[in-house]
Design a protein around this nucleic acid. Structure first.
Lengths: 301, 301
DNA sequence: TGCTCCGTTGAGCCTAACTCAACGAAGATG
DNA sequence: CATCTTCGTTGAGTTAGGCTCAACGGAGCA
């Protein structure tokens, strides 16, 4: 029943990298793990095959004859597999998914994370189209759509909430000292005229007239205006992190208003099992989960 | 820094087996896992590469072109690695370790497990020599010794307790009905004359004379005598499990006397890091830990 | 003699991968 | 044509392999 006896392939990969570099530390760098992990992996492999593969010295690693033989085999074997993955992508040309997304979400969230998708899923190509108008995102012109939606299930649609809509006020950092709600100019988005009244009510702040102030076509423009010092805009928390970190805007008040809606991935329920859709979902879910852990704009400047 | 991008090699192995067999169930059999594990692994791989590798039907699996390409590559790659392991064993001829072991332990514990060692560590060959005399096992004539020892560390020796010494009485199952300690014949081992007095005292059983009865050269012979219905012998729990399961002997009393000593692997402390010794230790420790979970004589009849 | 670099290791944690059990779909059988 | 069997999938929960962190020891270097 046993066709082939293989050691732990994880340990084997550790060994192969360590042997190729003649260094535990460099192998750890290549594999993005700690040197300790590589050291343990190699030890485990040596124990499994019952033979020393390296002679260790502080200067570096020297392969034993057995190690040389195993290095050749594992390098060729892993190379063959890696080459096969490339060949496979030609047998299956990149899968192109047409994605429709809300403009602000695309520019502040999706695009900054784009590189990681290309790296981790080379077989997936996204054709991104954006719209500031939620209605345009509804029809079947896209394979999948990222829109603002509540958690309510929709017949025939699979939905995956990604990023909660939470509003918070932002102003130019220059205006932060002595900021006064009664004298502040509220910057509105035409699409979301109720945002300010709701936020102010939830925060328990009273102003002369919550509907006063200039109206902009989109939240993005209101945000730009706030950064320019024109007044205070309501931003979506998850989408202004980088602006705050970069010092473009700052929060004059700590209250964040939660809502029941999220930026949500929506696609045809029948395509749930399609690996391309599964990959897209998994990637988006992972990125959404690491929200706040590290911002891509910080780590990949 | 990233030399090669590889998917999860565990998932890849699942896929390769499933693709080769054109069957999840058969692949699971080969890999000694459940079909669910293989199914999940393949799904994860498909998601990782973003491409369907199989088209599923109840009749079986059919590979997509991408799956064909990946099967070829992974099969060749894994074959190359497996072949390299064989070649490696020729570069490093089997390591032969001279093992000295207490006779009863060797026959009742070590030998029944021998096959699993040969299977899991083909690079390790044990040269087993046994003795019923503990003194013969001490000197440096062996690479490692399995002897009765307490947990006290010994200078210059590495020790690994394997199986605790616990004594329990056994008789022929035929004598079990109406067994009476006052009329029973105690079968003694010459090497361990104190065993019966100690066990009886610990169990709180009084007999006319705990030292009466025939003396045999070894526990093994006393055990044989008990099985023949000559009387009641004191056996070591871990070594009579199979005899009890096979109905050769039975326990007339549930009490098991624990001691501070164990069958213990002993070897030169300096050879602790030697992979062959590490492999031997790991194998013995694993076998000792599965003690009672399944007896090798049951599963490999 | 002290510094630095490198590999190892003890302790503890985390998550990928596994098991178990239940389920639905597609032949096979009577 | 109902029933049974086989096979792959999947939700829930568990486990252990592999990882990190931090501390340590030995070898070369200043």
């Amino acid at each position: 029943m046993t066709y082939r006896r293989l050691p732990s392939l994880v340990a084997l990969r550790n060994f192969e990298a360590a042997a190729r570099h003649r260094s535990v530390t460099r192998a750890a760098g290549e594999l993005h793990v700690t040197p300790g992990a590589v050291s343990r992996g190699v030890r485990a492999l040596e124990e499994e095959v019952g033979t020393a593969l390296f002679t260790r010295s502080a200067a570096g690693l020297v392969l034993t004859p057995a190690g040389e033989a195993l290095l050749a085999a594992s390098k060729e074997g892993l190379d063959r597999i890696a080459a096969g993955l490339v060949a496979m992508r030609q047998a299956a040309p990149p899968r192109r998914l047409r994605i429709g997304a809300y403009t602000l979400f695309a520019s502040r969230w999706l695009i900054p994370r784009w590189n990681r998708l290309r790296e981790s899923h080379p077989g997936l190509e996204l054709d991104l189209q954006t719209s500031a108008d939620p209605l345009e995102l509804l029809p079947g012109a896209f394979d999948a759509v990222i829109a603002v939606a509540d958690a309510r299930p929709r017949l025939g649609l699979f939905s995956l909430p990604l990023v909660p809509i939470e509003t918070m006020p932002v102003i130019s950092p220059a205006l932060l000292p002595g900021f006064d709600w009664h004298r502040a100019t509220l910057l509105h988005s035409r699409q979301r005229p109720d945002d300010w009244p709701r936020w102010l009510a939830a925060a328990g702040i009273e102003v002369p007239d919550p509907t006063r102030g200039p109206r902009f076509e989109s939240i993005a423009l209101a945000l730009d205006a706030a950064a320019e010092g024109l007044g205070v805009a309501l931003a979506i928390r998850a989408l202004v992190g980088a602006d705050i970190a970069a010092g473009r805007v700052a929060a004059p008040h700590p209250f964040i208003r939660s809502t029941t809606r999220s930026f949500t991935l929506l696609h045809d329920a029948e395509r749930k099992a399609d690996p391309a859709f599964a990959a897209l979902r998994a990637w988006l879910a992972t990125e959404a989960a690491r929200e706040g852990i590290d911002d891509p704009r910080q780590t990949h400047p």
